[in-house]
Nucleic acid binder design. Structure first.
Length: 574
RNA sequence: CGGCGUUUAGCGCAGCUUGGUAGCGCACUUGGUUUGGGUCCAAGGGGUCGCAGGUUCAAAUCCUGCAACGCCGACCA
């Protein structure tokens, strides 16, 4: 490709609304442009990268025995009503009406459509197991789209769905997909980790996420220092402390704290160390038979954070978790947030495991501007239950029993689920089993965020000059940079010849034939991230040589003109 | 949804306090100059100042409403 006939669209300046490096570089390198919030146009070089990711995913899926198909983006509402997700999914499901005013959804995922397809087409156990996938545009009306294509409202996803007669069979396919995903991320050249995950709105039991490690990641992942245990922090169990609770040694003592409403203020004004106090968060409880929600107190150590996901899974707590308004808190406790505590609290109290082993601790007195010290469970607080409701922190014991936890940030690029019969049951998708009886199928589903991978790859592979594409993803393999071509007779001649010969040798080339200064060309090629560059200039031609540069290693090499094709082929394809 | 902020040329921004016919840099066009890391000079094209209403002789500037975009959102207990 010649730059003069291409849309290179590189930018010198960074658009101000791009927060993270991959978003900035994708805009600057001319890969994407924003159309509206969370909606992006893919320019030619961006699309080339996207297609490369797609193809690797496609090849590995095919290798693992999955079969590609394509389903509509627009899906009839009644399918979603059948699965129950028309109500459940919330505003993230973008809904539209057709000209007859019939309701449809723009597909955020395709469990309903595939289940509808399979229940009609597959009728015998002999046709199972089967694993069907597609690579397609998905629509999710995100609350807050951000980071460019990282969290967009329209994005490319590979979604696969498998159908089975038994759990064991599902398990086998699940393992195969797990392996296929590892293969994909290996081939993409990314630093990634599979982690134990929550199933979220998709549902099911067993689930793993695949994360590309990056500081800008929106998820935190906990790893064991000693084993290969890794889990999303929202799912990582905070194991019960191995210590016994010390016996009370202090009396309950009221003290005035007129200006201390936070853990930090308690520390600064009254010397209370955060791990010697607890915070009491008040959320709404699960509705009773009259649909009334009471309040429930969640008590965690002062230096810990509540894990909302763990909390809302408890029977006492309403799901999704919702914190009580100040008004409701004052009505129930007589105090405002900032002076709350478990002593004398008239509502169910859930105490985190780590808070439950504390003795002589500090908490609010449920009276504005007053705290207690010397609080002890069973003496001062009698009616409570102990649960795991906090986020793990660095240094916690690993739930696997070996080592301690480290925490890193990751970008979720893949997610696999054992769905079980959640959708097949609701939509009555069964086959005739060997016994001659109808049997509901067991399902798995497997997603990869194809467009997100493009951004994640840049987060992991860039420098001050631009993108450093892994070989498998680069939009072009080789850049030809002829210097001051218009001033020379032999440079255009040689550049054209090498362009033709190298193309014939199967190399994907970006030939910079613009009438630009060398610096401009070098900067653009480095920004776009072309891994190999061939520089043709008068200086080296005097010795019958051209120059090779490697974007990743920075290595430079002078090559004799008559060996150029051979040597370059070796660098690019070798 | 709540809080905060932004909106002036394709991009990045100034101008607004104190109202008087809209500017800078980059990009783009033309000519010249330069040429191994984002040359320099000159001449140009491009904006109903987010939208609607109001105040005023006069509004990018002051007032009201709306919208779009962006950042943050248990961590306060």
């Amino acid at each position: 490709m010649r730059t003069s006939q291409y849309i290179l669209a590189t930018l010198k300046e960074t658009p101000s609304d791009a927060e993270i490096i991959s978003h900035q570089l994708m805009l600057r390198a001319g890969m994407i442009r924003k159309l509206a919030s969370g909606l992006y146009t893919w320019l030619p070089s961006g699309l080339k990268v996207l297609r490369k990711v797609e193809n690797i995913v496609r090849e590995e899926m095919n290798k693992a025995g999955a079969i590609e198909m394509l389903m509509p983006i627009i899906q009839p509402a009644d399918l979603w009503q059948e699965s129950g997700r028309w109500e459940q999914f919330g505003p993230e499901l973008l809904r539209i009406n057709d000209r007859h005013n019939r309701p449809f959804a723009l597909g955020p995922t395709h469990e309903e459509v595939i289940t509808e397809f399979v229940r009609k087409e597959i009728s015998s156990y002999k046709q199972l197991p089967i694993n069907l996938y597609q690579i397609q545009t998905k629509v999710r009306d995100e609350v807050r789209p951000r980071f460019g294509v990282m969290r967009a409202r329209e994005f490319t996803m590979k979604d696969a769905y498998s159908f089975h007669l038994s759990e064991e069979c599902l398990n086998e396919t699940y393992k195969k997909m797990h392996q296929a995903y590892c293969n994909v991320f290996e081939r993409l050249g990314l630093d990634y980790r599979p982690v134990i995950a929550d199933t979220g709105s998709i549902g099911g039991s067993v689930s793993h996420e695949f994360h590309v490690l990056a500081e800008s990641g929106e998820d935190a992942i906990a790893f064991s220092s000693e084993s290969d245990y890794a889990a999303n922090i929202e799912k990582a169990e905070a194991v019960a402390p191995s210590i016994e609770r010390p016996a009370p040694s202090k009396e309950l003592n009221r003290f005035d704290t007129p200006n201390a409403r936070t853990i930090e203020e308690l520390k600064q004004q009254h010397g209370v160390k955060p791990h010697r106090g607890v915070k009491t968060l008040i959320a709404y409880g699960a509705p009773n038979e009259n649909e009334e929600r009471g309040l429930v107190a969640l008590v965690v150590r002062g230096d810990h954070e509540l894990n909302e996901l763990k909390a809302e899974k408890l029977a006492l707590v309403d799901s999704p978790l919702e914190f009580a308004t100040e008004e409701d808190i004052v009505k129930a406790t007589g105090a405002k947030p900032g002076s709350l505590g478990p002593v004398g609290l008239n509502m169910p109290i859930i105490v985190d495991r780590s808070a439950a082993v504390m003795a002589d601790f500090v908490a609010g007195a449920n009276e504005d501007g007053v705290h207690y010290s010397g609080i002890n469970f069973d003496r001062d607080v009698t009616d409570y239950v102990v649960e795991d409701i906090r986020n793990v922190v660095e240094g916690d014991a690993s739930p696997c029993g070996k080592g301690v936890l480290n925490i890193k940030r990751g970008i979720e690029v893949g997610h696999i689920f054992q769905l079980g019969t959640k959708y097949s049951e609701a939509m009555k998708a069964g086959v005739l089993a060997e016994s001659g009886k109808n049997q509901i199928m067991t399902m798995g589903c497997y997603g990869i965020g194809v467009s997100r991978i493009v951004a994640a790859a840049i987060e992991q592979n860039h420098d001050q000059y631009g993108i450093k594409w892994p070989t498998a993803l680069a939009p072009f393999e080789l850049a030809i940079v002829p210097m001051n071509m218009h001033k020379s007779h032999r440079i255009p001649e040689i550049a054209e010849k090498l362009y033709a010969d190298l193309q014939a040798a199967g190399i994907d080339i970006l030939f910079d034939d613009r009438k630009e200064r060398p610096g401009v060309m070098f900067n653009d090629m480095e920004l776009v991230g072309v891994p190999h560059t061939l520089v043709i200039g008068e200086r080296n031609l005097d010795n019958n040589q051209v120059e090779y540069k490697n974007r990743i290693t920075g290595e430079k090499e002078l090559i004799d003109l008559d060996k150029a094709v051979e040597v370059l082929l070796n660098h690019v394809k070798g």
